[in-house]
Design a binder for these strands. Structure first.
Lengths: 197, 197, 197, 197
DNA sequence: AATGAATGAGGCTTCATTCAT
DNA sequence: CATGAATGAAGCCTCATTCAT
């Protein structure tokens, strides 16, 4: 799928603006400037502001799915896949953070924009953690009665630990190099994984 | 339920509107109507739209703190306090849900509105879970190296399970009567609480 | 005509507000407060804001006419009457200044408010200077081909010299005790009055 | 007369509206229409209503200064310069009248709008009459002890005689062709100029 | 493909006015 | 007579969107 550069630049500029200011406050003019384009040109790539927003979300879902596909295809144990997911999440490229911010805002349902369209787009979002936990439970590697729910719990945990993503008000900042350890420690407890004997 | 003052009716109508539509899309005119008032009357109680929004957040924080104060004052074990928090969270009055929605949107930092003012208001928000976990760890009741962080992790877990609060996209709906059990089960694991000796 | 105190206080408060801020910017609420009354009470004395404004102008015209009547009835020469007018103008009571301000604003036609009503009210305003000049010309005391117009020219001169009334931008402030002399000097020239021989 | 820029058309439309209705009552929407533009277009040229008003005043001051510069540069006697000023004032283009109206409203201090900004703008307004009178006095051509004040007195006289500018209430209308004569006659008396030797 | 001048719907906010007490 | 809570018309201003170039 060939993606013209300008369209991609627009998506990145839009993601930054939407993540920082929200849908309503974000300014089409400013987004265009940030993408090195004139205001009117935006409308050659996207029908309107809403379409631009949905375009950003689409791009986010596709990117996430690509990461998920890659990890799921690895010939390793479920636990090692989880380690991969954690590592991937906690070392995302900085310029991807705005997309991650928007994803979190919708994934955990706090955003109000276009909920109908969101439901449709998010239905295509792969949830590797859920898949891994389910597989692990089936293979006796993990132990939980609610594998899918635990997938989301872990996801939420990771979102709280992602660097650059704003952590909850009041939560102490975990040093970068301890995040992985902390996350895996909690996940191990949740999934009842035995440390090596 | 009888609503004592006009100001309070406004806060509830505003909370519903802001939770459903966000700050920008919410309409002062509509909020006033919902509160059974004329447009201009809103400005007798709040200087402007922003003040109304902050008023809603203030009310939320105060309400939460009252609940927290009550629970923290109970003469019971830390674990029982956690049970109280879980129960309180999962059985909040339906008309409080809009406030909860707004709280979640800011607590987990996904909202963009008035971040400076939010920081100030949220600095006054008590975090009973953090307090309880810290006390429990000190008294040997719980075991974790990151008591405060675990407080927030548990908080996030509860937010995901609150009925009527929109759960994460894709997460299966947990039956009402199993939510408490599920939450306490996970919390027990996270905090290393022994079931029965 | 018995004038209730409250009505008069309202007129003074209104004159101050209208003179300082103009008709549109003046605030009924504030005027009421200044008069020691509640907002709603204003409407017991005046039908609406416009009627209040016209009431102020009416009061101004009546006051001016009373002064004029007094001076015109004096058994003195025309020149001495002019001296009286000048003196009266330059020593008006401070609390009358707002009325004078409003008068000047309309007399010299720069104000936009209610021009139709103003024409009617101002048609009742006596112009003693015009009368005096006309009489003086007839009696050979003054010399000018445009007696009425000269009356207005002199009036304008006085308005520029009235203490507390804002003088034109840039015009140097004439010391209080020289104003009378200056005015009479110019008037003498305009009317061709011979100094005593 | 061809109007070069949109900005200029706006200034003229605004001047008409502000002169006729005052700052508060004038309607941005209507001004835009009068200038053949849409409401929003006004804001491409002026930041807000106040800026538009100040723009009009600025334009007035600049125009006046241009006229003054031209007259002051003429190689003629001071009296002839005064004749030029009188002639210029009394034959101003009709479409300049709104600007003149606004100028008079502020020059003679009856307007309430933006007095701080006005003081600044008016400080740049040249007063040719004051300059001419001062020069004439110095050169023995005129005789008065208050040259600067007399400049403003003459200015006020002219303002009262400008055609189309609303004259004072009650003042008889001087036929167009006699205004110049009348004005010069009074000025001559004020400045003690000898008719013919 | 690119632009940005022009537009006007929409929304917040003010404040004169009303009216029940 | 007096009040002030409540109202809603009116107007400024923003900004997504259009379209002629």
């Amino acid at each position: 799928m060939e993606m013209p550069t300008k369209r991609l630049e627009l998506l990145y500029a839009a993601a930054r603006a939407f993540a920082e200011q929200g849908f309503d406050s974000a300014n089409i003019n400013e987004i265009a400037s940030q993408a090195g384009l004139g205001k009117g040109t935006v409308y050659l790539y996207f029908a309107n502001k809403k379409a631009l927003y949905l375009g950003v979300i689409e791009y986010t879902v596709t990117s996430f799915n690509n990461l998920a596909d890659h990890i799921m295809a690895l010939p390793v144990s479920n636990w090692e896949k989880i380690e991969q997911v954690v590592h991937t999440f906690l070392t995302l490229d900085e310029e991807f953070i705005p997309f991650l911010t928007l994803w979190a805002r919708h994934q955990f349902h706090h955003a109000t924009e276009f909920q109908e369209d969101m439901a449709q787009i998010f239905s295509r979002l792969r949830q590797p953690l859920c898949e891994i936990v389910a597989a692990g439970v089936e293979q006796g590697e993990f132990h939980t009665e609610y594998p899918e729910t635990m997938g989301y719990v872990i996801l939420s945990l990771l979102a709280m630990l992602v660097p650059e993503l704003q952590v909850p008000y009041g939560m102490p900042t975990i040093p970068r190099d301890q995040r992985s350890t902390l996350a895996l420690d909690v996940i191990r407890k949740i999934l009842g994984v035995n440390l090596e004997p």
